[in-house]
């Protein structure tokens, strides 16, 4: 499933990077400790997080994630948006809390790496 299909089916809003949504999603990772994301997330995973800080873009690029998903209607900081635009890292969002978003994605077959 591509990021675009995932976003449509899970009703995620595309906040940044609408032209980078054709990547195949390999799975998901959820954390608010960016250090654990950098250590454990896999290439082309989507990352569900509460963080808005610009460092999320850099971390996502290091691990080569396919998209960042912000929970609970949180809006990225301005600098986060700018960097995500520059680097072509999609940021999606939903008004739902993390548990609900992850449940939807899991139900659609996007799994964590175990």
């Amino acid at each position: 499933m591509t990021v675009k299909e995932m976003a449509e089916r899970a009703e995620l809003e595309v906040l940044v990077g609408a032209d980078g949504l054709d990547v195949e999603v390999t799975g998901g990772y959820a954390a608010d400790l960016i250090s654990t994301v950098m250590a454990n997330a896999k290439q082309d995973n989507v990352w569900v997080t509460w963080h808005l800080h610009p460092n999320i873009v850099a971390a996502a690029l290091i691990v080569k994630l396919s998209a960042i998903i912000l929970v609970s209607g949180r809006q990225p900081e301005q600098e986060t948006v700018q960097r995500a635009q520059q680097e072509g890292m999609p940021i999606l969002g939903s008004s739902l809390p993390a548990f609900e978003i992850i449940g939807r994605l899991h139900g659609m077959g996007i799994l964590g790496t175990v």
Binding site: L33, S35, M38, H51, H53, N55, A59
Partner: peptide, 10 residues
């Protein structure tokens, strides 16, 4: 700073 944000923000 490292656990939460990974590294020193630019």
């Amino acid at each position: 700073l490292f656990s939460q944000l990974g590294f020193v923000p630019r």
